[in-house]
Design a protein around this nucleic acid. Structure first.
Length: 646
RNA sequence: GCCGACGUAGCUCAGCCGGUAGAGCGCGUCCUUGGUAAGGACGAGGUCACGGGUUCGAGUCCCGUCGUCGGCUCCA
């Protein structure tokens, strides 16, 4: 048999007989490697270990130290799930079972839904299969034979997939144990015994191909890791995410509520949440004024005709509250602030000397979100955008975009975010007619966005053909505590509305020109940003944002007057202070203040009253000793003024 | 909007195979005045989400509505 040359990652070359499997090559290198190998990479492509090598190639073995093997491993775990399910519930029909960022799932069809108890049973069976180390075997079978067999078994989804995805004479299936064969491209790990750590997490409804007119499936979610340690760390993260959930903390810290009587997706800000909001808004308004924005305020409703002009009444109709009829005409609750700011712009004749015009508003809008999509503060029906619209000349565009990017970065910095990603969404270069605006406009806008990001050293992922129909945009996304990505800041050009509203300014040439228009929101909405903030800080807001910055805790009732005096002194300096005057033991009061995540607890008893001091306890650092109220202010006020993060 | 689970005191939850509602925390009163994460006693508090139905009898079973949660889809 002729030899072929196998190149290994260290550059060395092995001569092996043609048809030697990757696994044999690994065995030739070391027993340990053969035992550890999960999947082989041949000329850059991941393949099963038992694939015969037919030509000169470079080969690498991936073990549980390689992230790319994890995907294969999880894919195999999905097969394990399906195999176990079939053993227990043979009537189940299989859809697809891919790996995901966090684990894997398998979509399955069965008349009766799986219960959590079923999941436990399935998981136990999975462990049995792992124990008997069932092999994952790839088999090539004639396509029509496979189709006929799956047809006979009623595996309608498999049939559909094979019909759609293949046209070769033979297709590949993977077998695990007796019952399970799955149409699958692979690769897979050699046997199920290699799966060391997995857990089924939940079951949820899904549709075949995501189409709600198609069969209802059950999606079983699970996760798998190379090591038990990593699995428990992951489960711990999920617990932590639950602990930080803004809906739970919002209730515990009395920040906000959603009232069934009022309706879903409508937020009630309680005094404590309201305080945080006020502080946030004060900061933002200050920034806006400094940066040359005009602060405006506009109504919540307008005649339907305005929304006809803007186009929303047609293309945004499904997302709006239904119009209401008044004596003179239909009125529409606003889903966006843009038309209102445009009306302000249009209210007088504008000269190029007036530009840029920057109009900002904390504008409350209402959108009809479908009933199943509401989620705490993160997806609601009524929310306040920190919205602004900039009208400028083409020459001013780049500077304006840079200004927006700078403010967006300042928002991230001040609120303590370091983890974010940026996307630049562009058009299709004019290949379709789905985009408004001219090629020149798109070019100018996209170039200015790209340049602004480059000048600020921000790495952005370009997303071709992902722009809004009216213009290109930059989106900044944050990752929250549960790993969900939330879009907050957005900077968008608009070539559509200026045309629809005939916006103009008089240029130096004495003629009318159409201004460039930029929408931008930095928090996205006050509600969403607040929700992300709650989870980000796990409810322990930095002092400058904390609704109660310090609580004075008298040791006994006799010390309440002194405590009140101290609180007043601190309050006079603008500190948000409360006194816990209940007849409770100090330990109890401290416990409550800790649970409420109050940054500073000021214990006052006889010693403090005599010495004119307070004993400072920091929520994280504990008891830091006695100081005078004035000294306490000296340490705290600078933290507040500088908006220190912790 | 779709699928599934859930909805019991202010909060967190128990309540079996249908027989007229419970705990802890919180709240109120009283006792206690205690020095860095829960002192004690007593008490008030519920149209069991809402509307129908089955039944001698419904928190419990059935249907519908509303809401919440997990997903799907959606989020120009």
């Amino acid at each position: 048999m002729p030899n072929i040359a196998v190149t290994l990652p260290d550059g060395s070359e092995l001569q092996v007989a043609r048809g030697t499997t990757a696994l044999r090559v690994a065995e030739g290198i070391s027993k340990g490697l053969a035992r550890a190998a999960l999947v082989a990479e041949v000329d850059g492509e991941l393949v099963d270990l038992d694939v015969p090598l037919e030509a000169d190639s470079s080969v690498r073995f991936l073990t549980n130290r390689d992230e790319r093997a994890l995907e294969v491993y999880r894919h195999s775990a999905a097969h394990l799930l399906a195999a176990a399910t079939l053993e227990l519930y043979p009537e189940t029909k299989l859809g697809i079972g891919p790996p995901t960022d966090q684990g894997f799932y398998y979509d399955m069809y069965r008349e009766t839904p799986f219960t959590p108890a079923d999941l436990e049973k399935i998981e136990r069976r999975m462990r049995e299969i792992v124990k008997r180390d069932a092999k994952n075997q790839r088999v090539w079978i004639p396509r029509d034979e496979a189709l006929a067999e799956y047809e006979r078994q009623g595996e309608f989804m498999k049939c559909e997939l094979i019909t759609e995805k293949t046209d070769e004479a033979r297709i590949s299936v993977y077998k695990t144990g007796e019952l399970f064969t799955d149409f699958c491209r692979g690769p897979h790990i050699p046997s199920m015994g290699r799966i060391k750590a997995f857990k089924l997490l939940s079951v949820a409804g899904a549709y075949w191909k995501g189409d709600e007119k198609r069969e209802r499936l059950q999606r079983v979610y699970g996760t798998a890791f190379f090591r038990k340690k990593d699995l428990s760390a992951h489960l711990h993260r999920l617990e932590e995410a639950k602990r930080r959930d803004h809906r739970k903390l919002g209730k515990e810290l009395d920040l906000f509520s959603i009232q069934e009587q009022a309706g879903p997706g409508l937020i009630f800000w309680h005094p404590k949440g309201g305080t945080i909001r006020r502080v946030m808004e004060d900061w933002l308004r200050e920034q806006l004024v400094e940066r040359g924005y005009g602060l405006v305020s506009t109504p919540h409703v307008a005649r339907h005709g305005l929304w006809k002009t803007s186009g929303h009444a047609d293309f945004y109709q499904d997302d709006m509250f239904k119009p209401m009829e008044l004596d003179d005409s239909l009125y529409q609750l606003k889903p966006m602030n843009c038309p209102f700011h445009i009306l302000i712009y249009k209210n007088g004749l504008r000269s190029y000397r007036d530009l840029p015009v920057r109009l900002a508003e904390l504008g409350t809008v209402y959108r009809y979100e479908r009933s199943g999509v509401m989620h705490g503060l993160l997806r609601v029906r009524g929310f306040t955008q920190d919205d602004a619209h900039i009208f400028c000349t083409p020459e001013q565009v780049e500077g304006e975009v840079i200004g927006c990017v700078d403010l967006a970065m300042e928002v991230l910095r001040v609120f303590g975010f370091t983890d974010f990603s940026v996307e630049l969404s562009t058009w299709d270069g004019g290949q379709s007619d789905k985009y408004a605006g001219t090629a020149e406009e798109w070019d100018l806008a996209e170039t200015s966005l790209r340049e602004a990001l480059r000048k600020r050293g921000i790495d952005a992922k370009e997303m071709p053909d992902e722009a809004a129909f009216y213009g290109p945009k930059v989106d900044i996304k944050l990752v929250d505590a549960i790993g969900r990505s939330w879009q907050l800041s957005t900077i968008q050009f608009d070539f559509n509305l200026p045309r629809r509203f005939d916006l103009e300014y008089i240029g130096p040439d004495g003629k009318a020109h159409q201004p460039m228009m930029v929408h931008r929101a930095l928090w996205g909405s006050v509600e969403r940003f607040f929700g992300v903030l709650i989870e980000h800080y796990a409810g322990a807001f930095p002092v400058w944002l904390a609704p109660v910055q310090a609580v004075v805790l008298p040791i006994t009732d006799r010390h309440v007057p002194y405590a009140t005096e101290v609180a007043k002194e601190l309050g006079n300096e603008g500190l948000r202070v409360e006194v816990d005057s209940r007849s409770e033991k100090i330990g109890f009061k401290i416990r409550e203040a800790q649970l409420q995540k109050v940054p500073y607890m000021l214990v006052v008893g006889q010693r403090e009253a005599d010495g004119g001091t307070v004993s400072v306890r920091h929520r994280k650092r504990g008891n830091t000793g006695a100081v005078t109220p004035a000294q306490f202010l000296e340490t705290v006020l600078p933290l507040i003024r500088s908006r220190e993060a912790s």
